[in-house]
Design a protein around this nucleic acid. Sequence first.
RNA 1: GGGGGUGUAGCUCAGUUGGUUAGAGCGAUCGCCUGUCACGCGAUAGGUCGAGGGUUCGAGUCCCUUCACUCCCGCCA
Length: 594
Amino acid sequence: MNKYRTHNCNELRKDDLEKDISLSGWINKKRDHGNLLFIDLRDNYGVTQCIIDKENKNFLDLEKTQLETVIKIQGKVVSRLEETINKDIATGEIEVVINTFQILGNCKELPMPVFSDQEYAEEIRLKYRFLDLRRKKIHENIILRSKVISFIRSEMTKIGFLEFQTPILTSSSPEGARDFLVPSRLNPGKFYALPQAPQQFKQLIMISGFDKYFQIAPCFRDEDARADRSPGEFYQLDLEMSFVEQEDVFNVVEKLLVNIFKKFSTKKLMYENFPKITYSDSMLKYGSDKPDLRNPLIITDITEIFSRDDVSFEIFKKLVKSGSRVRCILTKNTKDKPRSFFENIDKWAKGLGASGLAYFTFEKEKNLSAKGPIGKFFSEQALTEIMKKINAEVGDSIFMACDKKSDLEKITSLAREKIGQDLNLIDENIFAFCWIVDYPMFEKDEVTNKIKFSHNPFSMPQSDLNEKELENPLDILAFQYDIVCNGIELSSGAIRNHKPELMYKLFSIAGYNKNDVDEKFSGMINALSYGAPPHGGIAPGIDRIIMLLANEKNIREVTMFPMNQNAQDLMMRAPSEVSVEQLKDLNLSLKNKK
RNA sequence: GGGGGUGUAGCUCAGUUGGUUAGAGCGAUCGCCUGUCACGCGAUAGGUCGAGGGUUCGAGUCCCUUCACUCCCGCCA
């Protein structure tokens, strides 16, 4: 028999009455009645109430023992009186009468309480992460994460995917995020980079003939943090398949996600077959390529209305003449909303730096009219036309914005969220997944005005790039796709370009000549010329999936040992300075500090 | 790199228009209490009000600088 325990702290039930048992765990809570002491003993599995009174010679010692001390108790299981049963814990029908106890691990005065629902400053939580992780909610989050990951492994393996590890020390890639660099001792002056993703390796695995690959892959990017973005490192379910089209990848991932979310959440799925929305549709209807489909509001372009003679809203008309567009959001049956509702949204938009949101409500007594400060600028015929265009009924309202396309997308997207929230239209108990497809291969850099890859340079274009298409590279679409859930981008993927000639063509559009490509992607381009299968894949973000399942807004709540916003580990004190000897080994010298 | 928020006891927070000795709850220490499950009651200790400078007769409070944490923008193929 194990010397620490016969049972864990979530095991004892009425069936165990009168048994002599031992438990080990942390003192979660003490309730000291002077001559009678209750101790809630906690371990990973649960809590058991233990009790001791002054007749016992150990009473005074136990009474003095600090919370969070690790103890072993030995005693007898007894039933609780009917009125003292605790229904909130699984072991609540029994308690353990302590005979002897032993301290296994002492505990100093705590810098933060463990047994509390209070929120604490991030700094102290991260410094004492081992204490923070004892707390219920985050402890459960981390267990959930473990379970989801094993579930993914078993599901993927079941359908024929093989899990492979790829190198952590690899080479720096020219595109994308900043790399983390590791100096090479054996190759003075040269550096490894930590992989931003195993992108090239997984393609090489396909070219090596392995057919279906996955990995719970660590990815390293040296970029600034956000609430849903760890600084430094994060995990992806990286996967790749050979001889597949877009639909094949969709089928695998859609089924997997449906299974995960059904198994690990009680929230409903809005769609089990994820709708596919083209990038251009998404940008128009939602103003974003990560739409929250729980929100029923839709954006419509009504620019043409403002070239009518019977519309006299001159501010918009002028802007439209100089190339701006007008888009609107329709809200159903909002005629009885107070004026403050409309004004607040207009004010909110102005606060964001936009020129505000014009609004009115469709009304009809004898004639159709528009109620609101700008209603008088629209004729009855123009209003009828708008209603037809956006499918509105009397009693509905619209909010309109006028701007250049990209600014217009931004403001309408934010307005859609804001109005959705204000009208309480978003059901928090739903997951709404969708695919965003048909991404453009290229986009124009707003600063330099140069053409650049909009996503992944290794994606397959949807055409062979004949002369005519090459003239308008911004119109070239790629077999490139994203999964979005509740407005959060979960992953992006693509059918890859496995034809070197096509690759050179695409890179030349983005301003790289053949030599550049050969040099920067030598491993890839070389491999592609030795018989590469058509292949594609995707890489859903594990951390964000867990965030959705655990209903957390911050990625640190689902990460065991996260860094803070400045990419420091306050517990391990990373990053740290290194010795002169270490630097010398690496052929590095530091510039003098300020 | 830029913008917002926060910083007062070990923890969570209050602190009025600038005005006497900076408070509460939890935790700690001591005492009382045999049925609690956020046990209860009483007492004690615990403070560079993030740091530095300024205004003022007087600053936790006003001003300037700076640091830390956090959220956002940029960035994240």
